[in-house]
Design a protein around this nucleic acid. Sequence first.
DNA 1: AAGCCCTAATGGTTAAACCATTATAATCAT
DNA 2: ATGATTATAATGGTTTAACCATTAGGGCTT
Lengths: 253, 253
Amino acid sequence: MSLFRKARQNRIFQDVVEQIEEAIIRGRLKEGERLPSERELQEIFQVSRGTLREALRVLEEKGLLTIKPGVGGGAFVEPVTTRQVSDSLAMLIRYQRVSLGHLAEFREGVEGIVARLAAQRSHLQDIQELQGLLQRAKQCLDEGIRAWEEFLQIDERIHMALARIAGNPIYLFVLQTVHDNIDRYYERFLPREEELMWENYRDLLHIVSAVKQKDPEEAAKRAREHVRRFRMHMEKAKDDQHPRNGEGPSHPP
Amino acid sequence: MSLFRKARQNRIFQDVVEQIEEAIIRGRLKEGERLPSERELQEIFQVSRGTLREALRVLEEKGLLTIKPGVGGGAFVEPVTTRQVSDSLAMLIRYQRVSLGHLAEFREGVEGIVARLAAQRSHLQDIQELQGLLQRAKQCLDEGIRAWEEFLQIDERIHMALARIAGNPIYLFVLQTVHDNIDRYYERFLPREEELMWENYRDLLHIVSAVKQKDPEEAAKRAREHVRRFRMHMEKAKDDQHPRNGEGPSHPP
DNA sequence: AAGCCCTAATGGTTAAACCATTATAATCAT
DNA sequence: ATGATTATAATGGTTTAACCATTAGGGCTT
């Protein structure tokens, strides 16, 4: 660990960034509040408009502000979300050329923990939510392959619901990131077979059932198996398409 | 899931950002490589310098570029690190959207999975690396409380080694991020007692032993307990310092 | 009441200049 | 020759002043 960070704070816009950031974190600027116009801020900070705008770009990129043009426009304080973490995590995954296998394996582990925690912490209301989603999934099932897309959506919502029930926001956005990055593979490689929908549905039934009965280990086991089965199907389909590649290239063209 | 994203791509600098970002991700701009000077880029993209600089600010904030002033200076492509993820996670913690307890719980889960995988996949060479680190930890132990800092460093290195041995880079950088954000709390709240070093050392011995014997469940269990114990110590110390707060504020003053 | 247009406020962009920093080259003193 | 000093030029950082594009709201026409 290095004790010191590089000095160099000679850049004026950085100082503006820090001041505004501090104001937001300290609560002196509240969510949804509008900052003064650029020309006013220019006066306040005694900097040129270009410099001020560079500061605003940074704050916008950090997710602390959104900027709207036009008369009613200006810089508005954003609610703090997990979006930034998800985005940067997604960047790492894309950039590091993580393989699909790695991503799927990671998902397997995390979904296992999430299911375990959800089983420990679910309330009646949570179970009802899950069962409601299951019911909708069942309806898709009855519509057959036409409802494939919707079915997958509901599947994802069930997983996210479990993450929420687990009661730790970190799992929620980590899982969200994983889904954002793995879905495109599923769409690409998963065979659209009705049998797969049934299998998937049965898995979900088992997971929710375990959660309802507050059986953490069973829930974790079922969740892991569920994800693993998904992965198997997909890797098989992938091998059929690209028989040469074992683990395969880590990103689609 | 929303089908569409907000249109609004009228902002020129955003287009510049995307082009450069694409070039970096596609590998057409490599790590350490220098981009043309601002005045040249101005010509290339046919934009004003102000607009170009707004684009550079965004890319800098994303962690893709660093900018150095002076003759040899310019915009350089950065190696990809977990810094961005760590920063945004740190931001969430400061905003109190996630608590230290959440982070510790997440770590517990992930370290469990990592230990399990490491036990399944370790080779002789890996065991030797772990035992080498253990030996150094033991030396610290003999030096007593003076070697506290170094001991913690070695502890972290053992955890990271396990993540590497687990063979999935996602665990590696996720865990790196967690450590980046949780270490400062440990430093702040962990009581510097020799007994704690011993306890910690025994935990590590057990984990490595389980990995060596290729007993995944034992390794996972030991790793979880290890992290949980750390957490307990810290929360206890934290409560002693701030008896009022249950979960407590998540950031130091 | 509906639609249109004008107006003013606001962000987005451009242009040209100057300042501050820094690596390199040239110069000078020893 | 060598080491220190100075000059030079390239580069990012900042300022200024203007103009363009978008937008909400008011007022007008129909």
